[in-house]
Design a protein around this nucleic acid. Structure first.
Length: 468
RNA sequence: GAGGUUGUAGCUCAGCUGGUUAGAGCAUCAGAUUGUGGUUCUGAGGGUCGAGGGUUCGAGCCCCUUUAGCCUCCCCA
């Protein structure tokens, strides 16, 4: 028999991990609800045509496709077609509805856009929703990257107001404050990047410039300059980019400096205006928590991979010196996402939380609350016979009093039951034996201190209800 | 798609230039101990050395092929 295994890039989540993950999900859910976002779930699989062409060429390659069922039942004509399509699939990147019609969800944003278009008549715009579901990518797994992972998104569609951007910044602040992760929120605008490309005299090279600049953190300016050169940017263009990247100071100072450099670009000025308005709204919204806002940083090298972004873009990075981790969240505005599905003129803005990475960071920083790791609070030892019946009666009463409790199901050796209790990490063990049964009491042992005393069930419930 | 690296007990890993019957720790089970866990002590079970082929008197170790995981680049969360 071969050893059992799970597909590459997938994971089991053991009880402790699930509890910790649920802690993150619950924290985020509460915040989303507080900000008026509504829950949404969409299917794990979408029609392949819904997904293809939305994530760029590289993205298309990474979509997990689902083989159609019943291929062997095809009639002769269809079989010929199938063979022809199959040959094409073997010779180039290509997919055919004859072979695959469906695919696993690649992110939550495109299914959301599809949903909005399909349900446009039922929705009250602006529509605010949050969604926490797994997504799949046929990527090469590596550290912190999986083929199945969860995303938590919050988006608003149907409003171009920058209040939305500011609210999403507040959500980020609040979430990472509650999760106790120190972060920097980088903010930029695609419009500044577009203006920069104009400035270089190569507006069509915006994506190349963007991709290269995004690596500034990793490979430094020299590396970026080299990559820009390889991507066909002129020396003058590179000089312009260097000038912009070298702008330092407070957010206000940076925006002023950009305004000076980009004064002849309408797009650029628009981007600068949007950024300063967003920050102004944020100041008003954050109120007393404003001092927390000092970690918002205008960063023109921020690019974000997804090519549907059109306005403000943000990215969250952990700011702790000990933690080396890429971005743990990101988002931005996309002006016409639903246009892809035939609904024009609907603007949206959203943020995403990379909860797998957030988990890793929290684990490293040891900021998970301790008490979330516990299950049942008390275990009843099973002494068998009449004592077992007595124990079951007690168990029922404990649960009726809303105390998480369980009984050892076999009347195994005492030592074995205690060892089990120890491994499971119960706070208390209850010993309903002959003496206890006759006196209609219970012996309750605190498993941390080892202290044990015989008490009535009422007293026992009182003790167990105290936070341990 | 490109590169690097590792596959030996349930888990983590030793195993010398090729040489008897492949080891340790942890875990499991049993006992010391049939109403007192965590710490001890004693014993036991558990292996196609990832798979296939080759060299050799002899291969866990050398060669070839293959496969899986991990890591890096590309890209991304």
């Amino acid at each position: 028999m071969s050893k059992p295994s799970i597909p590459q890039g997938t994971r089991d989540f053991s009880p402790v991990e699930v509890r910790k993950r649920q802690f993150i999900f619950n924290t985020l859910r509460d915040i989303f609800e507080l900000y008026g976002f509504q829950p949404l779930e969409t299917p794990s699989m979408e029609n392949l045509t819904t997904l293809t062409g939305k994530y760029g060429e590289e993205g298309d390659r990474l979509i997990f496709k689902i083989l159609n069922n019943g291929l062997h039942e095809k009639k002769e004509d269809d079989k010929n077609r199938l063979n022809a399509e199959w040959d094409k699939i073997l010779s180039k990147p290509y997919s055919s509805p004859v072979v695959t019609e469906r695919a696993l969800r690649y992110d939550l944003t495109i299914p959301f856009a599809r949903y909005v278009v399909m349900h446009q008549n039922e929705l009250a715009f602006p529509f605010r929703r949050y969604q926490m579901q797994p997504v799949w990518r046929a990527d090469r797994p590596q550290k912190g990257r999986y083929r199945e992972f969860w995303q938590c998104d919050a988006d608003v569609v149907g409003s171009t107001s920058l209040i939305n951007e500011a609210e999403l910044l507040c959500i980020y602040q609040e979430a990472f404050r509650q999760l106790q992760i120190p972060v920097v929120i980088k903010i930029n605008s695609r419009k500044l990047l577009a203006a920069l490309a104009e400035l270089c005299g190569m507006p069509e090279k915006m994506m190349d410039i963007t991709i290269a600049m995004d690596k500034l953190d990793k490979i430094g300016w020299v590396g970026v300059a080299k990559e820009l050169q390889e991507r066909g940017i002129s020396d003058d263009g590179i000089w312009q980019i260097e000038k912009v990247i070298n702008v330092k100071g407070t957010n206000e100072e940076k925006l002023l400096a950009f305004a000076d450099i980009m004064q002849h670009s309408a797009t650029g000025m628009e981007g600068i205006n949007e950024l300063s308005k967003t920050l102004a709204y944020y100041k008003e919204l954050a109120g007393d928590n404003l001092e927390l806002g000092l970690n918002i940083d205008v960063d023109i090298s921020l690019a974000r991979g997804l090519n549907y972004y059109t306005g403000v873009i943000v990215e969250v990075v952990c700011n702790h010196p000990e933690v080396k981790m890429g971005s743990i969240g990101g988002g931005g505005r996309y002006d016409d996402l639903t246009g892809l599905f035939g609904l024009k003129g609907l603007s949206g803005v959203g943020v995403s939380f990379g909860i797998d990475r957030i988990y890793d960071v929290m684990d490293e920083l040891k900021v998970f609350p301790e008490q979330i790791a516990t299950g049942s609070q008390v275990m009843l030892v099973n002494f068998g016979g009449e004592n077992e019946s007595y124990a079951l009666r007690l168990l029922q009463q404990l649960r009726a009093a809303n105390i998480a409790a369980e009984i050892y199901p076999d009347s195994a050796k005492f030592d074995k039951q205690m060892k089990y209790a120890n491994r499971r990490g119960f706070a208390y063990v209850m010993l309903p034996g002959d003496e206890e049964r006759q006196k209609n009491m219970v012996s309750l042992k605190n498993f941390k201190t080892g202290e044990q005393k015989m008490v009535s069930l009422e007293e026992c419930v009182g003790i167990l209800k105290q936070p341990s």
